[in-house]
Structure formats: C-alpha cells, structure tokens
C-alpha cells in the first residue's frame, strides 16, 4: 500500500513544486515592479544590460536569422514547386519570420546567451554574499540587479527580433534569387502584398513578453542559488530550461490570443 502511495506522494510533491515555483516567480516579478515604484530604475545598469542583450548579441542572433531564413526559403521551394506557387515563397518566409520564428528564435538565443549569464552572474553574487552585501549597503537587489535586466530584455528583445526577421528574410531572398535562380523582385513584391502590419506588430508584442519571461526567470533562478559553484551551475541550467519552456508555452498562448 505504502509502495503505491509513495508514487502519489511524488506526484503531489511535483505539483506543489511547480505551483510553488510559479508562485515565487510571480511574487518575484511583483517585487521587481514594486522596486521600480520605490527606487525607479538603475539607468547605468540598464544601459549595460541593453548593450549586452542588444549589440553584443547581434552576431549570434543575426546568424541564426540568416540561416533559418535561408533554410525556410529552400524548404518552401520544395513544397511550392509541386503546386507551382513559387511566388509564395517570399510571403511564406516573411510571415514565418515576423510572426513566429523571429521572436521565438531571438528569445531562445538570448536565453542561451544572456539568460544563462544573468543566472550565473547573480548566482555567483548570491553565494559569495555579494547580494547580502548589497542589501546591507541599503541597495535593493531588485533595483540593482533584476529590474535593469528585465527592462533591458523587454526593450531589446523586440529590437533583436526585428534584426532576426530582417536578416532571415534577406537570407531567404538570397537563396530565392541566387541559389534557386528565381525572380527576386517577385519575392519582395509578394511580401509587401501579403504581409500585414499586424503580423509585424503582433510578432514584436510577443517578443516583449518573451523578454520579460526570460529575464524574470533567469534572474529569479540566480537568486535561488545556494551551495557553491555547483549550485550556480544548477540554477543556470534551470534558468535556461525553464525560460525556454515558458517562452514556447507563452508563444502558443500568445499566438492563439493575438492571431
């Protein structure tokens, strides 16, 4: 009997853990918002983080966009060729990039690059008592560490998403025109024809949410660090995994709401 009940206990613990985690996350985010009201924003750190998430991530995000766009174009070609609608490749690539892949890929790449860094940085500060030192020096860690990262991420994610989408479409264009040897002007014309403003802006709105999610989770996980370097490694992993999952989950939710 105990044997069976133990499994239920495990499931129960897991559910509680998830709820607890989600609750902590929301409390954490709430504290961050309170911190903005109380102390406003640390502008210096904000710019640091914006540079880190933005320009410093340009190459990785750009490369991702480029190759995804190229692959999209090529794959769309194989499908479109069958029914003779190769002129629809441009809109296909552009829609996929602006609505879906631009925001999501950017968010995932920034999570991998910056989210992990946020978690490990704050985690290290936590275990070496630097966070405590901050508090004792009457500096709110939310104000000093969390809020700048979350806001920077929220602001820069749409910007980087534009970069990804644009470079992706460019990559698609290069493949369309030079590798597949089709008429590049058709590619561009059809994009203008079929893409709507709402496609672009809903994609960017998604990116804003993804930015909030990834920075919140990553910094939150950083503060959870304990138990030395191993603990930092653990929370970094958790931060990346959780952020990615929440981003993909949110993507579905947002897509079903926005589009």
């Amino acid at each position: 009997m105990d044997f069976i009940l133990r499994y239920f206990e495990k499931i129960g613990l897991f559910v509680l853990y998830i709820i607890n985690e989600l609750g902590s996350l929301i409390i954490y985010l709430w504290n961050c918002i309170l911190s903005i009201l109380r102390y406003s924003v640390n502008v210096n750190n904000l710019f640091d983080q914006m540079a880190f998430i933005g320009m410093d991530s340009f190459y990785i995000v750009g490369l991702t966009g480029l190759f995804v766009g190229m692959v999209l174009s090529l794959q769309a070609y194989y499908a479109a060729r069958i029914v003779g609608v190769t002129y629809m490749i441009g809109p296909t690539v552009a829609l996929a990039m602006t609505r879906e892949l631009g925001p999501v890929l950017t968010a995932l790449m920034i999570t991998a690059r910056c989210g992990s860094s946020m978690a490990s940085e704050i985690g290290t500060m936590k275990i070496s008592e630097q966070v405590d030192a901050l508090e004792v020096m009457a500096v709110d860690p939310f104000y000093f560490l969390s809020v700048p990262r979350i806001i920077a991420s929220m602001v820069m994610l749409p910007i980087m998403s534009i970069v990804t989408s644009l470079i992706g479409i460019f990559g698609g264009y290069v493949v369309y025109k030079f590798f597949l040897g089709l008429n590049g002007a058709v590619f561009v014309d059809m994009i203008y024809k079929y893409i709507k403003l709402s496609d672009i802006y809903n994609g960017l709105l998604k990116a804003v949410f993804f930015g909030i999610i990834l920075a919140t989770i990553s910094t939150f996980k950083g503060f959870e660090a304990s138990g030395g370097s191993k603990g930092v490694g653990r929370v970094t992993t958790q931060a990346v995994v959780l952020s990615s999952i929440y981003i993909l989950f949110a993507d579905y939710i947002l897509t079903s709401i926005l589009f």
């Binding site: 500060m125 630097q130 405590d132 030192a133 009457a138």
Partner: peptide, 14 residues
Amino acid sequence: RKKFGMVFQDGALF
C-alpha cells in the same frame, strides 16, 4: 541600514 557597515567573511567585494 545606511547606519550599518558590514565586513563579510570573504569580503563580498563586487
């Protein structure tokens, strides 16, 4: 807390 100063075990320098 501004009236406090604290020296941590390993310094806790940033």
